[in-house]
């Protein structure tokens, strides 16, 4: 069984940066890793330095293609739809060293497609079982967690900026998870781009909401230049603050601590 890590939080807080660095770290230490981009805008691959040849080759795109084929009755009666879908999902996978990447993309269809979603869940569950870790970069709206495309999550990281508004949003995300009763192991708060220490007021706010503050991340001076060049985050120097804290995150959540390898390979 693979370990699933979901990264959530409001827009622009650093979800993609942290997901990419965590996925890269785990891929180096204990491959293979599946990195899932839950943002319809699909940008995690860039942070990971991976190519995406076909922008429509996302889960959303494949789902839509399947729905279209069903509506148009284009499946031959003698073909197995699940088998067709399996192949398309594998085609959508971007395969790299120690790490594969899958984009959720967008799905705008109006129809109700329980059957298609069920088949999709079946292949995704099976696929996920082939990895040591699955890292999911969620979009701000938490759609995949609320739609239960993501089911069991072992570690949920809620990323916040160092503002009261940010923390309030993190509390809301936490409530959403509790209400949906999605199976979540550990839930932690990460405050990103914090200058100095957590203020007493913010500390109270966090404690009052029952959130566990795992780590804080300072402003990383190496991010802006990298961003200007458009280089992947995997090029951050090893002593870069962001990178160092991600190692901390992995250590503190026990992600790297002697996890037995159950790989099938």
């Amino acid at each position: 069984m693979s370990i699933t890590i979901a990264v959530a939080g409001k827009g622009g807080t650093g979800k993609t940066a942290i997901s990419a660095l965590l996925a890269a770290l785990l891929a180096k230490e204990s491959p293979p890793v599946l990195a899932v981009d839950g943002d319809p805008a699909t940008n995690l691959h860039q942070a990971l330095g991976l190519p995406l040849d076909d922008e429509t080759n996302t889960i959303g795109g494949i789902r839509e293609l399947m729905e279209e084929k069903i509506t148009r009755a284009e499946f031959a009666p003698g073909t197995d739809k699940q088998a067709w879908l399996d192949a398309r999902i594998f085609e959508g996978l971007v395969e790299s060293v120690g790490l594969d990447f899958l984009a959720m993309g967008r799905s705008e269809s109006q129809g109700c497609y329980c059957a298609v979603n069920h088949m999709l869940r079946y292949v995704l569950d099976k696929l996920a079982g082939n990895y040591q870790y699955v890292v999911i970069d969620n979009e701000a709206g938490m759609e995949h967690i609320s739609r239960q495309t993501t089911r069991d999550v072992d570690v949920l990281l809620i990323i916040s900026d160092p503002t009261a508004r940010g923390i309030t949003a993190a509390v809301r995300t936490r409530k959403l998870i509790d209400d949906l009763r999605t199976n979540v192991g550990q839930i932690h708060l990460v405050v990103n781009r914090l200058a100095g220490d957590i203020s007493p007021q913010m500390g109270d706010l966090i404690a009052g909401a029952g959130l566990d503050l795992l780590v804080t991340i300072p402003e990383d001076p190496n991010m802006a230049p990298l961003e200007t060049e458009g280089g992947p985050l995997t090029e951050l120097p090893p002593d870069s603050p962001l990178r160092r804290v991600v190692v901390d995150i992995a250590a503190k959540t026990g992600l790297l601590a002697g996890k037995p390898r159950t790989s099938l390979f």
């Binding site: 009666p77 739809k81 699940q82 329980c114």
Partner: peptide, 22 residues
């Protein structure tokens, strides 16, 4: 099926794949 996604053949395949399933 009502949704158009499951023909009798798909039903047979799905049942074989996961006899405890929906």
């Amino acid at each position: 099926a009502n949704c158009g996604a499951i023909s009798w053949f798909d039903g047979r395949a799905a049942y074989k794949l996961d006899p405890e399933g929906p």
